[in-house]
Design a binder for these strands. Structure first.
Length: 755
DNA sequence: CTCCCAGT
């Protein structure tokens, strides 16, 4: 029955066998690597199989994978344990330590006494164990309890697996509710979505329906309301939802009446699962974790803002002068002011568009801080942005996740950081680059980990992409006026009269860009639909731009797109561009992986951090480890014989991958605008068309356009582009941070008695 | 519909 349900997975295979050896087990979440002896072979199995023990018999459904280091493995999606039935198998099972209190000696005694009935005795009449010499009555009951617990864990895992709920979630349910977990869930399936997490409201609702839960049951409405709040935070960027909107949405989604919805919302607030307060005249309902995160951000920023200057203005002047001499640099007046502000305030925001010299300022600040004996941490919200910061400053920049030492969790919605208030970051100065992409949950985690006596510098361009997650941190902080903010306005990178610069300004002010003249650096080419746009983008890269401007299509032109999917999405563009710029040819080795063909000469991007992979410099004189999410390079060689692929990054570091590691790579002729943030290119070519308004916002177009140093070509629908320019976006985000920063007492930041 | 993170 169970195994019929697994048809949703491609190429699902079932295997059965005895667990030979537990190779690895994460006891927190049940992730296990083990060797399973089927009749034919010994297979390495990975998957969430909690409480698995050597000697147990398992049926597994999943698929075979090829691990780069450990070779052929079976990734189990579903499992069933079958209890051993023969004395010999039972002995092995009990001796494995599956039941707390039984090891080999005790297992032998039990099996000698009860034979094939051993497990029945353990389950139904554990007191009978006391017949055995050496087992007291108390010990017998203790063993019985341990066995019941083990079986209880199995029963909730098996029960939930029927509904497609993963064993790792089931394990959490078991930890929370114990041996009686199945009854708890049958009683209120919404506990899965609610208290446990990791299960969607829809799945819980499906289970509830099967259990016969009423449509207007309060637990269903409460869970539905929390789902609406979470969904709005995740997909719309709101940190709260106005009460009236929440009632309306709950009524239409859940099919209940207004009074029922209101009652459930009030109840959640009373139970402190949500927080309700008045913001901007609206009654605002927050999900508790988001409310807490926003509060921590407000509180920490206000506290940091109280810190005094690090040195006198005279000292600062001389420190700056010295640093600039060392770096053979000069700073403009506003840039110098920014460095000064960093020395005088516990927290500052440094904001400005591309080319306004943010990086130079950050470099100077790092120099001075280190000179003063302070340690500095530099981090950014994305791998790409962190890498860019690393290249430009020479400092060891990381992702914020990495800085906070993210630990593993089985719940995608919860992140678990090793660094927090009890184990704060060691560094004295924390610099966050691309802070516009910082969402409230991550900002909350970051603020918790910053020591009260540390200093924080937020660097970003509030006109660039809003975070994917909830909140409008940088915008709110700047608008609040509660944090010293330095706005950089002078552009050094391009001439101010450049059409790229002019149009970037127009876009951000909601005005339509202008184009036309032949000697401009900004062009728009109308095409009737996304497919035509994609074809024109390809033509531009292949022939038009190389012949008109002499650009190298692979190294100087970067194609960007808002989306991955669709005819003008990154995936399809990569196919078209690969065909145009690096077509199949005899003598050019290639290799298919998934639905992508990789070929010698391809432009590729590393899409997940790999801290261990080795690289060698082209001359072979230097070596090191680590290739990071967002690194771009070219396939130099594809060696079918050794199943290896060589990629050269930045023309200097050579990395060899096994074929199985191709999942870490993607073609990079085209990348998403999000991924491009923090990078710049000579020429940017981008299809523009009508798409999800949540995505097609003015900031997206601004970010794309400002990636270009010399040339921008937009291709597609003019009305689509105009809609994008007119879609301001973040004004539509409901957030409470600005209000809280402006009301410092509410943020709880004022020390001592009220003033 | 866009981003970040992980064990033998």
């Amino acid at each position: 029955m169970l195994f019929e349900r697994t048809t949703v997975f491609v190429q699902v295979v079932t295997i059965e066998g005895v667990v030979e050896e537990i190779i690895y087990c994460n006891y927190q979440n049940g992730y296990t690597v083990c060797a399973v002896d089927t009749a034919q072979e010994v297979v390495t199995v990975t998957g969430y199989i909690p409480y698995l023990c050597e000697g147990e018999n398992v049926k597994l459904a999943g698929r075979f994978t090829n691990h780069p280091e450990y070779g052929r493995q079976f990734a189990a999606q579903y499992y069933e344990k079958t209890l051993p039935t023969t004395s010999a198998a039972i002995l092995r099972y009990l001796a494995s330590g599956v039941v707390k209190g039984i090891r080999l000696a005790t297992a032998k005694k039990i099996v000698d006494t009860f034979g094939d009935d051993s497990l029945t005795v353990l389950m139904a009449a554990p007191e009978r164990l006391a017949q055995i010499k050496g087992i007291s009555k108390a010990k017998a009951l203790e063993i019985g309890e341990a066995y019941a617990k083990q079986q209880g864990a199995q029963s909730i895992i098996m029960f939930l697996q029927q509904y497609g709920v993963s064993p790792s979630v089931a394990l959490k349910v078991f930890r929370r509710f114990g041996a009686d977990a199945v009854n708890y869930i049958k009683d209120n399936p919404f506990l899965l979505a609610d208290e446990i997490g990791g299960v969607s409201f829809q799945t819980a609702d499906r289970i509830a329906l099967a259990m016969g839960v009423e449509k207007n049951s309060i637990s269903r409405i409460k869970a539905g309301v929390k789902y609406i709040l979470a969904h709005n935070a995740m997909t719309n960027g709101h940190t709260y939802v106005p009460f009236d909107d929440l009632v309306y949405t709950a009524v239409s989604m859940l099919g209940v009446d207004i009074a029922e919805a209101e009652r459930a919302i009030r109840r959640l607030s009373l139970e402190q699962q949500t927080h309700t307060e008045t913001i901007d005249g609206n009654e605002a309902v927050f999900l508790m974790p988001v409310y807490m995160a926003e509060g921590i951000v407000a509180k920490k920023l206000c506290a940091l803002a109280l810190a005094g200057p690090l040195c006198s203005p005279d000292q600062a002047e001389s420190l700056i002068g010295e640093a600039l001499d060392n770096m053979a640099l000069e700073l403009a007046c506003e840039q110098k002011k920014a460095v000064l502000a960093a020395l005088q305030n516990g927290v500052i925001v440094l904001t400005g568009g591309p080319g306004t010299g943010k990086t130079t300022i950050v470099n100077t600040i790092i120099q001075i801080m280190q000179k003063m004996g302070f340690s500095v941490a530099l981090a950014a919200p994305t791998g790409r942005a962190a890498k860019r910061a690393r290249e430009l400053t020479g400092a060891c920049a990381k992702t914020i996740h990495r800085l906070l030492e993210i630990g593993y969790t089985d719940d995608e919605n919860v992140q678990n950081f090793m660094r927090d208030e009890t184990n704060p970051l060691d560094e004295d100065v924390i610099i966050i680059d691309e802070a516009s992409m910082l969402d409230i949950p991550l900002a909350g985690s970051l603020m918790r980990a910053i020591r009260p006596d540390a200093r924080l510098i937020l660097v970003g361009d509030n006109d660039q992409l809003a975070p994917v997650g909830p909140g409008n941190l940088l915008g709110d902080v700047i608008a609040s006026g509660a944090v010293a903010t330095i706005r950089l306005t002078q552009i050094y990178r391009q001439a101010a009269e450049s059409d790229i610069v002019q149009n970037a300004h127009r876009i951000i002010h909601g005005e339509r860009p202008r184009w036309g003249s032949r000697d401009s650096d900004f062009f728009f080419m109308p095409r009737p639909d996304a497919a035509c746009a994609a074809a024109e983008v390809t033509r531009l890269c292949q022939t038009r731009l190389p012949s008109s401007y002499g650009y190298d299509p692979l190294r100087q032109i970067q194609v960007l797109s808002a989306m991955k999917k669709g005819p003008a999405g990154v995936k399809n563009l990569n196919k078209l561009l690969q065909q145009a710029l690096n077509p199949a040819a005899s003598g050019k080795a290639e290799r298919a992986f998934g639905d992508t063909v990789y070929r010698e000469g391809d432009k590729v991007m590393q899409i997940k951090n790999n801290y261990d992979i080795r690289w060698e410099s082209m001359a072979g004189s230097e070596a090191g480890t680590g290739v990071f999410n967002g690194d771009m390079g070219f396939i130099e060689r594809l060696d079918a014989e050794n199943k290896q692929i060589t990629v050269v990054y930045d023309e200097e570091r050579r990395v060899t991958y096994d074929f199985a590691q191709l999942e870490e790579l993607d073609l990079a002729y085209a990348v998403t605008v999000h991924k491009s943030q923090g990078s710049e290119f000579d020429a940017v070519v981008m299809p523009v068309y009508h798409a999800a308004p949540m995505l097609m916002r003015r900031k997206l177009l601004y970010t794309a356009v400002t990636r270009a140093k010399k040339l921008v070509v937009l291709v597609g629908s003019e009305s689509g582009m105009n809609a994008c320019v007119e879609n301001a976006g973040e004004q539509g985000r409901f957030t409470g941070l600005k209000a809280r920063l402006q009301n410092r007492e509410a943020a709880g930041a004022l020390p001592g008695p009220a003033q």
